[in-house]
Each structure stands twice: as C-alpha cells, then as structure tokens.
Simulated assay, not measured.
Amino acid sequence: MAELYSKSRTKWACRRGMLELDVLLGPFVDDAYDALSESDKLVFQRLLAEEDPDLFAWFMGHKTCSDAELNTMVKLILDRVRV
C-alpha cells in the first residue's frame, strides 16, 4: 500500500499552476482532509498526481473523469465548495 503523505505535504501538492484549482484544493485539505478515510486520502493523492488541464476540465464540468474513484473525489470536493 502506498504511504500517505503528511497533511502539510498534501497541502503543498495542492498548490497548482491555476488559481481555479488552488481555490478548490487548498481549502478542501484545510476543511475536509482529516475526515477522509485512509483509502479516500489515497484517492485524493492520486487525484493530485493528475495533470492540471485534466483537473480543470473535471472540476469545471467540461469533461468527466473515466476513473470512478477520482470522479467521486471530484464530486466530493465540488459538493464541499457548494456548501
């Protein structure tokens, strides 16, 4: 099993090249990361390994991620933002 990154390292990985992604990912780590299960934290880290243009397209609704786990994480993040 992959080793989980520390929260601070995960927060650092949320710093992207696009402001739109920064304002979604950083606050999610601050507010919701600790409540995720270990498996969901691994999915979130997999999400962070994706390319910025793909993340942007998924979060903006231009495309749907074909990976079901990543797609569920995208929806979870968007739901947290809309609250």
Rank of each mutant, 00 (worst) to 15 (best):
G17P: 00
S8A: 14
A32L: 04
P27A: 03
V29F: 01
L25N: 01
D31P: 04
L25P: 00
K7I: 15
A13T: 06
L19P: 02
W12F: 13
T10Y: 05
K11L: 15
D30C: 04
G26V: 10
D34M: 05
L4T: 04
G17M: 04
Y33P: 00
E3D: 10
M18K: 06
F28N: 01
S6L: 15
A35W: 06
A35I: 01
T10N: 01
T10R: 02
D34K: 05
K7C: 14
D34H: 05
S8L: 14
A32V: 05
E3L: 07
G17R: 05
F28V: 08
L24D: 00
L4Y: 03
K11R: 14
Y33E: 01
L25D: 00
Y5G: 07
D31M: 06
V23R: 04
E20D: 11
S6C: 13
Y33T: 03
V23C: 10
L19G: 06
W12S: 15
S6Y: 06
D22R: 05
R16G: 07
Y5M: 14
Y33F: 12
D22I: 04
Y5F: 11
D34F: 09
L4I: 04
A32K: 08
D22C: 08
L4H: 03
A32F: 12
R16W: 10
P27R: 03
D31Q: 10
K11I: 14
